[in-house]
């Protein structure tokens, strides 16, 4: 961060980063969605996504990242927690114990027959929290003098 003032020509890094960023993001989304059947899940997925964001941070700088992705990561953490809590909580309205998941097969337009599981919503909460947490930590430390 101290060398920020000195302009450096990072064309190769920046070009590669833009390409690799999308690969990593897609890989992380794959990890996230595959979690229920094969290794992966919200935690790894979230870490991978944030590592893609860190790559952008390295190739450009934090200001650029903020303008490209204007996200408040603390809000993201809170949203993730809310989603996880909401998924855990919904079952008590149907007279079930806290954190009882439900799943069923649905016929969706475009996607056809799919199994939907509330566990994926819970995992989404985990995913968002992990991204929020990692990015908050890295951003705060990075921007501090």
């Amino acid at each position: 961060m101290k060398r920020k003032s000195k302009p450096v020509n990072d064309v190769i890094l920046q070009t590669a980063a833009i390409i690799i960023f999308f690969i990593i993001v897609i890989f992380s989304i794959d990890l996230f969605f595959a979690g229920h059947y094969s290794p992966g899940g919200g935690f790894i997925g979230g870490l991978m996504t944030s590592s893609a964001l860190v790559l952008l941070l390295l190739a450009f700088d934090s200001q650029t990242l903020k303008t490209v992705l204007p996200i408040d990561y603390r809000l993201m953490t809170a949203t993730g927690l809310l989603i996880a809590l909401g998924t855990s909580l919904h079952s008590i309205f149907w007279g079930r114990p806290f954190l009882t998941h439900a799943y069923d097969k649905f016929h969706l337009p475009l996607l056809g027959e799919q199994t939907l599981h509330t566990a994926i919503a819970f995992d989404l909460g985990v995913y968002l929290v992990v991204i929020g947490v990692t990015m908050t930590i890295i951003q705060t430390i990075g921007e501090s003098e």
Binding site: Y37, H101, A119, D123
Partner: peptide
């Protein structure tokens, strides 16, 4: 309805 036991334990059996 899952096959990754670790993840199912994390989000379902022991989601708490």
């Amino acid at each position: 309805a899952g096959k990754n036991m670790v993840n199912v334990v994390l989000v379902d059996f022991r989601g708490f």
